[in-house]
Amino acid sequence: MTDIIHLEAVAMQVRRDIIRMVHACQSGHPGGSLGCTDFLVALYFDQMQLDPARFTMDGIGEDIFFLSNGHLSPLFYSVLARRGYFPVSELSTFRRLHSRLQGHPATMEGLPGIRIASGSLGQGLSVATGAAWAKKLNGDQHLVFVLMGDGEQQEGQIWEAALHAGSRKLDNLIAVVDYNGKQIDGPVDQVMPLGDLRAKYEAFGWMVTDFDGNDMEQTVRTLQQARQLAFKGTPQLLLMKTEMGQGVDFMMGTHKWHGVAPNDEQKERALAQLSETLGDY
């Protein structure tokens, strides 16, 4: 049985970590990170079959996850550390010289949990298709997850990958779009409207499910359902409605906190809204 209360407590601590990490180095991307926190916590603490103590690059015999929108690195690092991939104390080195916690996720420094570099957008779905094929060739009945941004859907490579996965019926692949409707220059609907994203993916041969990614119970239920629908002949896309900046009132409802660090006073105001559930790093 999934303990929703526990997952919410983990998510609360992860949000604190994100604010503190971005504040400490005065750089990074808090908005999208806060928005996707519930999803990534549900994935790593409840839904994925994995073994943090025995991380291998190949990930044979376990589910694997790729972060395509690499600027959500503070979220990814916090979840990995809290899940036991590396010491939480290392979160204090985020974006510092010689840290394994690079500005955007990287493999070169050997940080456990990271299997591909990301940051330049649009590449993660392609990488995920390759990892999904490797699982099929290996007879490995586990899933490949990938998270993308909604603005990222403007990259052409995404649609090459979507065509490939749909045409080739890559049914061990579950892609998630963080549908917060915001990107750096403003609302997605103004910068470059995506139109009917559900219909587009369906036309490419995907099964599409909508859900509220800031509702932990719904997120868990959606991921459980996606697992049941895997290996049935189509890749799956989860259209995840989120609020950029979720959990910190003054960061919500605007695209302005996409890539801006809070100052001292803003950090305190944010942390006052996020209780310390697991102990700060």
Partner: peptide, 22 residues
């Protein structure tokens, strides 16, 4: 893997195939 005319997808997928030992 016949990729069709999608070179970016081909390179990304190749990177992914190495994750799994290929």
């Amino acid at each position: 893997f016949q990729m069709g005319i999608s070179e970016a997808q081909m390179i990304g997928m190749a990177a992914g195939l190495t994750i799994g030992g290929y």
